[in-house]
Structure formats: structure tokens, C-alpha cells
Design a protein around this nucleic acid. Structure first.
Length: 415
RNA sequence: GCGGGUGUAGCUCAGGUGGUUAGAGCGCCAGAUUGUGGAUCUGGAUGUCGUGGGUUCAAGUCCCAUCACUCGCCCCA
């Protein structure tokens, strides 16, 4: 074990970072609540099949990025690489399919065995929503609107753009995929090494290639529009219309292809150019076949997930913390009185920190360091009068205040 | 998994072509100020030079390996 380092791709969330994470997840949770999404939590690990089948055996996530191991009972377990499959499993396990629509919000850690990079970790955190049981495009529109609203609320609406595309229904997608395979197979030798591999694993991905040679070949690749059947075309048009109605700007990107097998119809990504190679900040789509693939009834679904780390890096400073009141006792009797006074002040809702050791000067310096709004000094003089010296640390003014008046006085200061 | 860059104090970084006890700023600690913080002044402590090998009379400095971070590819949030 390499000494005292965290395992590769993991990190400690120290208070400053944690506050940013909390700002992201709290904001998302609150906005999701306004749409009727209820928070749930599913296990951090599941039986491997829960992820392997729905995500797709040949996807990178399943083929090389899952933390999979056998537990002591011999079960094959996987740390969740994403949460949609877990949520669907929970829906099926708990018999929730009777009471659609289902609207869930979640927040928690995910795990992928990848080479770490800026905005990419082996343990990372996602917030996400899933809306199950609604086949209408209104579901797509609301889910995207919720993502949009969260980004706005976080103050980064102007740093991201929304890309949107459709993969059509399974029939359209299969026909298009067939056409692409035919086309690229004819040009197999000219394709980049990566794209030759993609041709076998996920041909739609070739459309998204950054290789200059591939881009040339893509120029005359068949367009999805020709293979979309009428219902799929109509569905996508209604999604776009709804977004327009809500004033949500988006860019139709026919090259937007999502990696997971379960997507159908709408796919979308909010992307930024401020995070290097990791541009995607919130992404998702519709997954109408997933529930059935996992052994449930035919049930449509749409959702998205967002990377908390990535969002936390984009947002500004979180709001300042409430400034504490510092208790500064001097002497044995005062220490005891301060302990009790602290509880009384906290009963009044004040943030109170004790200065634990040292002489007056040291304790006052400590009070200053923690950004205290005021210091409450208690020594023998004060005790004798059942009062305390209240010092305003911003103005430097101080006066003797009866203990009974302290909560009100401090609340006035803190407010 | 592939390719490039970086690794010296808690933090940000100096340390030409190898040469004695490895430096600065910030921060930290102590004092000036034994019932009063911030500012100032004075003094102090920082460290397996990422780790392990190698070359050399001598390695923070050169070589190899390894680990971590970082940028890009792949993929993705």
C-alpha cells in the first residue's frame, strides 16, 4: 500500500470543496423538488448484471471501466458506474411500476476505473433525475428544463450550451446503424484505427470522431434524417418546439451520440469549453427500452446525470458562512459558565465556538481567526455580576451585558 | 489502455554547466502587549528535495525504474 496517499483517482473533499459540492447538490435538489421529483438513494454497489446488460456489454464503461469483484460469498459485485440502471432496478424490486409516473432525484458517488484527468475521477459524484412512465415529449422537455434551471440557479447558464439530437425509436436507430455500417465498411481501410474499432463496437460514434481523416469520410456519410420514421421525427419536433416555447436555447447536433446502449429518441448534453477535454457537464436522454430490458414491463423513461465535481469547478464562490460568536472564558469557573452559556446561545440559534485554551490574547486571536462576529468574555469580574463582556469584533466596541440579555443582543449583531 | 509535462517546507515557488550545514514569500509558533484580536516590529521551527535503484570522490541537480499529479487521445459526468 503506497503510504498515506489516497488511491488513484480518489480525493478528499475538504471543507472548502465540500461546500461547493453542497451548493451544487442542494441547488439541484431544491429545483428538482419544484418539479415534483423526490429524492431516493440506491446502493453504491449492485450485482454486476444490473449494469452490464442495460449499459451495453461492448461499451467502454462495461468493458473496461467497472469496479467489479467477487465478494466473500462469491457474488459478482460492481460499484455503480452510473445510477440510471440502479434506479430502474429499485423501481422493479419495490414494485413501483404500478404508480407511474415516477420522478426521482438522486445524488451520490459513482465509480469508474479510468485514467484521471481534470474533471475526471475514479470516484466522482453525480446528481441526476429519472422520470419513468411518461411517453409524451413533455417529459423530455421538463427534464431538460429542470437541468437548464439548475444550471441557471448555479449561475453558470452562460458558460454552457445545450446540444440536442435524436436517436429515433429502436427501428429508426437500427436502420440508421445498418446504413452507417454499410457505408463505413466500404471505407474501412481509410478510417482511423479508433474508428475501425468503433465500426465494430459503436458505429454511431464514428460521426463524433476528431480525426481529420474520419471527418472527411463523415462528410458524405448517410444522414440520420433519412432513416427517421415519421413518429420519431414528430416526437423530436415536439421536444424542440417545447424547448423553444420555454425559451431554452439549444443547438441541434446530428453528431451527438451517447455511448450507453439504452438511449432512444432524445439525447442531450450541456457542454462547456472551460474544463479542458471534459466538456460535458450534464447529459442524458430518453431510454424507452431500458425497463423492459431489465425484466420489467414496457415503460418509457427519460433522465440525466450531471457531474458534481465538474459543476463545482464552474460555479463561483459559495455564499459566506454565518459568522460565529466566540466564547472567551478566563479561569476555571468561567470555563464552566462558558460551556453552559454556549448551549443557551445555540438554543437561540446562534453559531457558537468556544476558545479552548491559552491566555486572553491567544483566545482573542483565535476568535479573530475564525471570523467571529463578536466575542463574549467571561472572567471573575463578569461572573460576579452575572454578566459578560460583549465585544463587537468589527467595531471594537464593548460593554457589559447581563447574561439574560445576551441571546437577543447577539442575534441582533449576527442578523 | 496510449502519448507529452511536472514533482524542493502546510501553500506558492527559487535553487546556470553536479561541490560543504537546501532558500524566499505567505502561513505557523513565540515575544513586544501576564483582562483584549486585526496592523507593525523582533525572534523561531519547518523538509525522508515524491519513492527506489544507478553513475560519481561528491547527486535537489545526471541516468533508469516506479508512484502521484497534470495536459491530450480513448471514453465519459
Amino acid at each position: 500500500m503506497p503510504e498515506l496517499q489516497p488511491a488513484r483517482g480518489t480525493q478528499d473533499l475538504l471543507p472548502e470543496t465540500m461546500r461547493r459540492h453542497r451548493r451544487v447538490s442542494d441547488t439541484a435538489r431544491e429545483q428538482a423538488r419544484l418539479y415534483g421529483f423526490a429524492e431516493i438513494a440506491t446502493p453504491v454497489f449492485e450485482f454486476t448484471e444490473v449494469f452490464a446488460r442495460p449499459i451495453g456489454e461492448h461499451t467502454d464503461i462495461v468493458a473496461k471501466e467497472m469496479y467489479t469483484f467477487n465478494d466473500r460469498g462469491g457474488e459478482e459485485i460492481t460499484l455503480r458506474p452510473e445510477n440510471t440502471a440502479g434506479v430502474v432496478r429499485a423501481v422493479l424490486s419495490n414494485g413501483l411500476t404500478q404508480s407511474t409516473p415516477l420522478k426521482f432525484f438522486y445524488s451520490g458517488p459513482m465509480f469508474r476505473y479510468e485514467r484521471p484527468q481534470k474533471g475526471r475521477f475514479r470516484q466522482f459524484h453525480q446528481i441526476g433525475v429519472e422520470l419513468l412512465g411518461v411517453a409524451q415529449p413533455q417529459a423530455d422537455i421538463e427534464v431538460i428544463a429542470l437541468g437548464h434551471r439548475i444550471l441557471q440557479a448555479l449561475g453558470i447558464g452562460n458558460r454552457v450550451t445545450l446540444d440536442i439530437n435524436t436517436l429515433g425509436d429502436p427501428e429508426s436507430r437500427a436502420r440508421y446503424r445498418g446504413a452507417l455500417v454499410d457505408y463505413y465498411t466500404q471505407h474501412r481501410a481509410e478510417l482511423s484505427e479508433d474508428s475501425q474499432r468503433r465500426l465494430d463496437s459503436n458505429p454511431l460514434r464514428i460521426l463524433d470522431s476528431k480525426d481529420p481523416g474520419d471527418i472527411g469520410i463523415n462528410g458524405s456519410a448517410p444522414a440520420f434524417g433519412l432513416y427517421l420514421n415519421e413518429p420519431s421525427r414528430e416526437f423530436f419536433a415536439r421536444v424542440k418546439d417545447g424547448l423553444g416555447l420555454l425559451g431554452i436555447e439549444c443547438r441541434e447536433n446530428p453528431r451527438l451520440v451517447r455511448g450507453l446502449d439504452y438511449y432512444t429518441h432524445t439525447v442531450f448534453e450541456f457542454v462547456t469549453t472551460d474544463l479542458g477535454a471534459q466538456g460535458t457537464v450534464l447529459a442524458g436522454g430518453r431510454y424507452d427500452g431500458l425497463v423492459e430490458v431489465m425484466g420489467g414491463p414496457a415503460m418509457p423513461g427519460v433522465g440525466w446525470a450531471a457531474g458534481i465535481e465538474r459543476l463545482a469547478m464552474l460555479i463561483g464562490e459559495p455564499p459566506a458562512l454565518a459568522r460565529p460568536i466566540a466564547l472567551v472564558p478566563l479561569g476555571e469557573a468561567a470555563e464552566r459558565a462558558a460551556l453552559k452559556l454556549g448551549e443557551a446561545l445555540r438554543d437561540a440559534g446562534l453559531v457558537v465556538e468556544l476558545t479552548y485554551s491559552g491566555n486572553l490574547q491567544r483566545r482573542m486571536r483565535r476568535a479573530d481567526r475564525i471570523g467571529a462576529r463578536a466575542a463574549v468574555l467571561i472572567g471573575d469580574n463578569e461572573l460576579a455580576q452575572n454578566a459578560a463582556t460583549l465585544r463587537d469584533l468589527d467595531s471594537g466596541a464593548q460593554e457589559l451585558v447581563p447574561l439574560g440579555d445576551l441571546p437577543a443582543r447577539l442575534k441582533a449583531l449576527a442578523g
